[in-house]
Design a protein around this nucleic acid. Structure first.
Length: 136
RNA sequence: CGAGCGGGCGGGACUGCCGCGCGCCGGACGUCGAAAGGCGCCGGCGUGAGGAAAGUCCGGGCUCCACAGGACAGGAUAACGGAUAACGUCCGCCGGAGGCGACUCCCGGGAAAGUGCAACAGAAAUAGACUACCCAAGACGGCGGCACGUCCGCCGGACGGUACAGAUGGAAAGGCGAGGUAAAAGCUCACCGGCACGGCAGGCGACUGCGUGCAAAUGUAAACCCUAUCCGGAGCAACACCGUAUGCGGAGUCGCGCCGCCCGUUUUCCGACGGCAGGCGCGGUGCCGGUCCGGCAUAUCCGCAGGUGGCACGGGCUUUUCAGCCCGAAGACGCGCGGCAACGCGCGCCGCAGACAGAUGGCAGUCACGCGCCUUGUGCGUGAAACGUCGCUGGUAAUUCCGUUUUCGGUAUCUCCAGUCUUGAACGACGGCAUUCACGCCAGCGCGUACAGAACCCGGCUUACAAGCCCGCUCACUUG
């Protein structure tokens, strides 16, 4: 999956204010239905629905090295989840890193993120979902 | 070996799978398009963080503001000589301070232009006279004398003279000695110290040594200040271009006075009122990012939202034009030469990441290094203890030989007992698939591998930094 980043600040504000929220010890996830999803689908050369994702790591969790590390780990976890599960499309997803995201291993962040996405009702039921990983 | 001083290196490595940014190539794919091509997708190749990328403290390049005006304000620097594109950086050197020394220092204009401040203590704080010392001269008072005067002698206090002594203080207007005096004082002299010099010698110079002269001079300039030198301001969120048809926000299309054209209302006219293009003056506003002077502009302008460039070395040439070639460059590396050094010159060679929610990663494994465990080990080594054998010491019984009448003494062999780490004495050698302990090594297991992420680009400074390694020098000792 290619990541489509959110660059507009007001979209972050909307997601924080109006989005569904789910948090764990390493990440907090905000999701909000993307009003521009249809337009983006039309613009997309492949004509697919996409999620726009923004990963936020504040200065609270550390310096530039720690913030980058948190973002990379979260991005990698999200990539694996997207490959192994059926994530709903057409949403704004904002993931805010918390302090533990800088310390934990990717597998731990993966579990946290999966839990949060499930709680935010972003996962479609898929019969082969949990076992899909092994079949690959 | 020990204790230090100065400088440098280093910044984990590899493999597999899955990914990311940028560039190039390929594609029979998707989409937009008339096409060229754009955007995407798939595949391949190349490339992709630091010594500090950090702090943003200095200096430059570059960009714009009016190519940068005048004055003031403000800021920075501060011995001297050099290096450099430049610097507050670097090198050398001078004086001072610290250290036995290697060496170090966020030590370095002016307090004989002015203003200020100097707590406490102390008699006194930048000048004075409290205690103290002194009556030689002068003044005053008292007493006495006679030759009675503008006289002489004695005494007094301190009007007066002095600043030697006085426990303080960072500092008491040089120190110490001699002379000198009524008492004293650089008042005079010798030595030492200080300051000055258009004096001599050395050095490019700061300065040093010598000489001559002088007696004025407490500290503080990280108090104001003065002197010299330098600095226009802001920064890539600069700035340029394309879109600005659009959205949002802000300021405004102006105020007063005078002149005056024209129009309207009213009016018989004069005149009054209103409108309006223009001119002049004053003001306002904006810009010339501190202020003033001076200048420009005055109707639309400014800011924020998008994209491209800046910008990933620069420039030029060319029918290989998504390419090729050439030249240059405060840049990196190597060699040579010059210089004590910073550094310079010449030659060779390289010429190297680039986003805009921000790429350079995730996971697994192997190895390296460090630390811990080592009651994880049929592991290895060393040491100690224990054990065994031999030796040795003491005792003991028997036997041989010698001395001896015998008791007994000596000597050698040997039995048994006790001992062989501190004693009365011995206090050593060897051994092990075997016991215990300690240390080290090798495996094994576990943990750790720092500080930290380019954002226009260079030169410095400062700060952060795990383990490890190297070079030069100093002091102390000669075996703990």
């Amino acid at each position: 999956m290619k990541l489509y980043p959110i660059s507009e600040n007001h979209l972050y504000q909307k997601a924080y204010k109006n989005g569904r929220r789910a948090s764990s010890r390493s990440v907090t996830v905000y999701v909000l239905r993307d009003r521009a999803a249809a337009k983006l689908k039309k613009q997309d050369p492949a004509g697919r629905m996409i999620n726009r994702v923004g990963i936020s790591a504040s200065k609270k969790i550390g310096g530039a090295v720690e913030r980058n590390r948190a973002k990379r780990v979260i991005r990698e976890a999200l990539r694996q989840i997207d490959r192994e599960y059926d994530v709903k499309k057409g949403w704004l997803v904002v993931i805010a890193a918390r302090y533990h995201a800088t310390v934990l291993k990717m597998q731990d962040v993966y579990r946290d993120l999966l839990y949060c996405l499930g709680k935010a009702e972003m996962l479609n039921e898929r019969s082969d979902a949990p076992q899909g990983r092994t079949e690959d």
